[in-house]
Design a binder for these strands. Structure first.
Lengths: 179, 179
DNA sequence: CTAAGATAGTCTCACTTGCAACTATCTAAA
DNA sequence: TTTAGATAGTTGCAAGTGAGACTATCTTAG
């Protein structure tokens, strides 16, 4: 990966450098870009586990991950909210998973608009095979950090996540309060 | 955002909980997922700046960011490598930016396969308007962290980035060594 | 009870983007 | 020099995804 040289060849006085500080932006130090690129690379690193080996795409994996972590069945909308994935994407993922008989759904007698989703035995088996691989991969990626750093990183991600939640629009906040 | 309850209702002995630790995965504690979601949200938060206000999409912004940080012109391929964006995506972004006369390109006499790209005066003006807004937004997002934490976060991102580089395939590593 | 509005899930459409083929050009080796 | 392979950039195509319309159902206000 090439990196634009940070040592700019004598292109101005120190005074200009000071003002440039606000007028130029080093993409490689810009946290939003770094996050986006890092997330893409980490996703790609994990894809080999759930895509190549198990034929799952990201939305499908998110459905399984949500169902697998919960003991009880839940609705597609709930999964969409949890994972911040559009409901149409979740709908397609659920359809694909049902065709592969990894997930099943039953009508909810109390609210017949929604379905209760849960993993089948087959889905459970796949899930239990997949999870250790993913956790191992995660550890592999984080192994460059000490245990202390990993904990700190998790805490900082948490703070930013929380802060972003607060920055959401009120309509989204209302939607969330429904839970 | 609903969060699956972490306090699982007495579903097994302590022994089972210990083994479950490896068989279940809490999406909300799974760093790859958190990164992906966080990156998406941060991107969305920035989009209002460069999309709504300046009509730029992400690839276009990445082209401008790379050109703006460098003093000299560079090739489309270089931008693709820097930003880890596919060359076809960069190609389309450059076309759009040229149509808006924000970027211009000149033939490279030394290698007539490639073009040297640089911002026009108009592109520079837009860039200088945009950058302070984006930096302010970044600070806003990171303001929930102390200066110390921000520095630590940057350092940790750096470590993971570096570690992922090492995890790449040899063909990619070769490509990088060309620089 | 009825009507209006909210919500769950599906489906169509449009857009974005990666892949891969293609052209043009460069490089290296026979 | 010639030829094979690599590289820069463009473009057609296909897959994935979000927006929003739509149906069915639920909720609430009158």
């Amino acid at each position: 990966m090439p990196k634009p040289s940070s040592s700019e060849p004598a292109a101005g006085s120190r005074e200009q450098n000071a003002s440039r500080k606000e007028r130029r932006l080093d993409l490689f130090r810009f946290v939003p870009f770094r996050l986006s690129r890092l997330a893409a690379e980490v996703s790609a690193a994990l894809a080999s586990e759930y895509q190549e080996r198990y034929g799952l795409d990201i939305p499908e994996w998110r459905v399984l991950a949500t169902l697998g972590f919960r003991n009880d069945a839940c609705s597609a909308q709930y999964i969409a909210d949890c994972t911040r994935t559009h409901k149409s994407t979740i709908s397609r993922a659920v359809t694909a998973l049902m065709e592969r008989q990894l997930v099943e759904r039953v009508e909810n007698e109390e609210d017949r608009r929604e379905f209760r989703l849960r993993m089948t035995r087959k889905g459970d088996a796949l899930y239990e095979q997949l999870i250790p691989r993913l956790l191992r991969k995660e550890q592999e990626i984080l192994s460059c950090l000490s245990a202390r750093e990993q904990k700190d990183l998790a805490a900082m991600l948490g703070k930013i996540e929380q802060s972003l939640d607060l920055m959401q629009t009120s309509s989204e906040a209302d939607a969330k309060q429904a839970y």
